[in-house]
Simulated scan of single mutants.
Amino acid sequence: MTSARGLVAAQSARFASLDPLLPPAAEPPADGHVITAALADGTRVAGVVSHQCFEPRSTTRLWSAAEVWELMPLVGTTQGMDALLMRWRQLLDTQEIGEDTACVVHWPSRDTRAARAFLDHGLVPLSVLGIRLRTPQQQLPRTLTIRRATPHDLESVLELSLAELEYSSFVGSTIVRPEAAALKRRALADRLAKASPIWLAERDGIAVALAECAIVSSEPGTSAAARLPRGRWGYVNCVSVLPGARGTGIGQQLVAHAHQELHRMGTVGTYLYYNPPNPLSSVFWPRQGYRPLWTVWEVRPASALR
């Protein structure tokens, strides 16, 4: 539709004015439910709502509700987010909604006007996509051994990954489900077998910290292109330090090493997701050079959207 293309173009211009690192606004999915709203001046805004249900054995359910309604707003340069969210609430009134559900919106972190609308409708900033461009970094004194993890390290990697999952479940979107250990074991065993970029920090021969990373390409047609500037990026998926070793600088040393190695692999920068309500990561990651690019606004259950 011409009007949709016009909104996408206007929204791309708005994104560019908000943050030069934002990619252009993505085209809306073709299989979603289209909603529209009229503003006081007669202009119209639109959005596409997608609906997904994740299978019980899906790893996605470790950081997501089982059933998710996600809104992709198309508000162009208008301040029409409030009107669009009201229309979304009306759509949800026609749905049967359970407890293990969520409403989710990804939106540029620097759009504070939209943030006001999200808060007014009951959405909270549970996650942030933080980005760090490749820059020279200070060499830190090394007080521990850092090495690539191998398939023989599965038990140590799993223990550290589950420790991070449990902590994050109190301060973010992750959920410790009964099948969490089995799902994590399967996924990590596969990643270790493929020699994925995963590092362990050891003290006196004991693994005390984990950095589980990946390489992601943001090119036209890829899912990453909707969130990141073009290029080859390092994704810092999970950094975990055992509770008794936190606050000693281990995490900082491990992350500095991971950055160095990911940059050696030809990345233009690194990105990650962290939880603003987390009193550790919300302080730690900005100190490592990350700043918000996208905020993931969420409300659970979905029926709590106002």
Rank of each mutant, 00 (worst) to 15 (best):
A4Y: 07
G6A: 10
A16F: 00
S17G: 13
S17K: 15
L18A: 00
P23N: 04
G32V: 08
H33L: 15
L39A: 03
D41V: 01
V48K: 07
S50I: 15
S50H: 12
Q52C: 14
P56R: 13
E67I: 10
T78R: 15
R87F: 04
R87K: 05
R89N: 04
Q95F: 10
E96M: 15
I97T: 04
G98H: 00
T101E: 06
V105N: 01
W107R: 13
P108C: 12
R110T: 06
T112D: 14
A114T: 11
R116F: 15
L119M: 09
V124G: 09
L126T: 08
L129A: 09
L133M: 08
T135I: 12
D153V: 02
E155Y: 01
E155K: 14
E155D: 09
S156Q: 14
S156Y: 03
E166A: 06
Y167V: 13
Y167K: 09
I175N: 07
E179I: 04
L183I: 07
K184A: 15
A189P: 01
R191C: 14
R191F: 14
A195W: 01
P197C: 06
W199Q: 04
L200V: 00
R203E: 14
D204R: 12
A207K: 02
G221Y: 10
A224L: 01
A226F: 05
R230P: 11
G234H: 10
G234A: 12
Y235T: 07
V236C: 09
A245V: 10
T248Q: 09
G251Y: 00
H263T: 02
V268N: 09
G269D: 11
T270Y: 06
Y271V: 04
Y271K: 11
Y273K: 12
P277H: 05
P279R: 00
L280G: 05
W285K: 00
W285R: 01
P286Q: 06
Q288K: 02
T295V: 07
T295Y: 10
V296M: 14
E298P: 13
V299H: 03
S303R: 01
L305C: 08
